[in-house]
Every structure is written in C-alpha cells, then in structure tokens.
Design a binder for these strands. Structure first.
Lengths: 154, 154
DNA sequence: CATGAAAATCAAGCTTG
DNA sequence: CAAGCTTGATTTTCATG
C-alpha cells in the first residue's frame, strides 16, 4: 500500500500488455521480443508488483461452458432503516452474485448476477434476493449482448 | 469450440481454484498438494482449455495506482433511429469505457467507466459520450464502494 | 550475463474399471 | 478398450550472485 512514485515506461507497457492478455506468457519470451534480459523483466515485474499496479493474475472461467447464459444487472432498493453491510453479507452468500456496488442514484445497490437462464434468474430473485431482510424492491436489466470487456488502458 | 461433454471432478476444481486466484501458481506445487504427478495436471489443464471452460489468464491491473479512483455505471438512451453497432464502435474508442452491455429495461446500453475523479467523469460524459451521434441522454450511477467482485462458482 | 535449480513439456507405457 | 496416471528424458524457465 506504499505509494512510491510510479513511473511506467514503454518497456513496462510492453511487458504488461503481454501479461494482461495471457498471464502465463513466459517472461523469457517477452524478454527476447524486447531485446533485454529475462532478469531485467523480473526486476521490473517486482517493481510493478510492489507498487500495487499489478494486483495479481487470474484464470478466466467461461461461464457459458458451465451453462450460465444469462447475465443481468439488478438495481436493489433498500429500506431506509436497512444496514448496508448486513445486506451485502447476505448477497455475498449467493454465488450467482458476482459484483456489487453501492451506488448513487436510483438504488442503493447495483449487483451483477450470472444465471443459467431466465427461469433461474427469476427464481434467484424471488427466492433469494428478495427474501433478504432490508431489500424492498429490485429492478432487473438483462444484458443481451456484452461487447466491450477490458481493463483500463495503461 | 467443440462441445465435448465436460465433466469436472474434485481434482479439476482444486486445480482451478488455485489458478483462478493466481494464474502463475506453479503446476508442480498444485501437483504436490493433490498428490498426483505434474504431467497429470498438465493433461487436465489441456482438457479444460480445449473444452473452453478456461478462457485464458489475465494479469489484473489496479486502476487506483494509475489514479483512476472513480468507477461509474452510465445508462445510455439511444435515438430510436440509432444504429447500436455504430454507437458501440464509438464507445469502444473511449478507453475509459471498460464494459458495455446491450440491455433490456430503461436504457439501450449500460456501460461501466473508469475515471480519475469526478471532474474527469463529467468531462468524459459531456465531451465524449454525449457527443456520439445517436446518444440522446445518459444517466450516471457512481459506484461508491465495490464489495463483491468474483467469478462464477465452479 | 551466466549458472544451478526448478518447472514445464513430451512421449511412451502402465493401470484400472 | 479407453481414460487417466506415471515415469523419466528433454527442453525451457526461473531467480540469484
């Protein structure tokens, strides 16, 4: 969490560009492309990790292969008296909820959910989400098509 | 893209659980933990990749280190005459837009944007997003706090 | 940059249901 | 027989001085 003055140059960007696309790219193959030693890449990566810019690396799972075809956003209205953290704790226990945001605007919470199909989504909402104490109302937006999905540009 | 009947057993889950958390976990260390050979893990991973369940691996960048502190969702209303694909193409040129969804409900498009601060968001919306031909109106929801952020459960 | 140690990869061959 | 595992040789990568 130490904020050292972080300077990323062109070489860092090339390194990260590779690893953002494929975290298992061999460091030496990047080194060969850039024309510097593998050890140099190592040092830069350690620096980037220490700075916190690189938060880690993850395998990406394709939900469709597991039969999860329905992606939706759900705006959640809370009772005025409700404890936000209590509701989040309940939402966290629902594995289909993959994101939650405390938001300004119409609702208190916006969540992203992954379901197998529309029936699954419907039962999830009525049997689980809307059963949570403190949630008064929900508003659902199906994602029919996700085009852009990327990370921040370096 | 061949859909072979995919069966993932407990061993596959252990392997993926490690790699979802850290894509650079050495395969042999997973092998030792499970008690099978590294080559066996390798074979299973090839199978999982061939099935499409594993969509790849990515380095995760922490936007805050780059000064991007503001996350927002923006609902985009389109003119009835508007071409969705044209608008998406324009949105795709805006690097701050990291997700886009064609949605049912109030808007046509829901996007997720990353900005350095509120002024940056404001100028992004007025100077770039709302300049796109076909976009009639936008509605912004600031994410004040993101708690849940994960992948689908295996 | 060079080097020993570790890991990944590959090809047979073995085991088991 | 087929699927999955093991073994061991070979290549590649890692991490350190």
């Amino acid at each position: 969490m130490k904020e050292k003055e972080l300077r990323i140059d062109g070489i860092d960007k090339v390194i990260l560009k590779h690893l953002i696309n494929d975290a298992r790219t061999p460091i030496l193959s990047i080194a060969r492309e850039i024309g510097i030693s593998g050890a140099a890449i190592h040092q830069r990566l350690r620096k980037l990790e220490a700075s916190g810019l690189v938060a880690g690396s993850k395998f990406m799972i394709n939900p469709k292969v597991l039969g999860y075809e329905t992606l939706a956003f759900v705006g959640v209205h809370l009772d005025t008296a409700s404890k936000y953290s209590e509701v989040i704790k309940r939402l966290n226990e629902i594995s289909e909820v993959v994101e939650s945001h405390y938001t300004t605007g119409n609702w208190a919470i916006l969540i992203k959910v992954l379901c197998k199909n529309n029936e699954h989504l419907l039962s999830l909402l009525s049997d689980k989400v809307q059963q949570i104490k403190g949630i008064s109302k929900t508003e659902t937006f199906l994602s029919l098509d996700q085009h852009i999905n990327r990370q921040i540009k370096l």
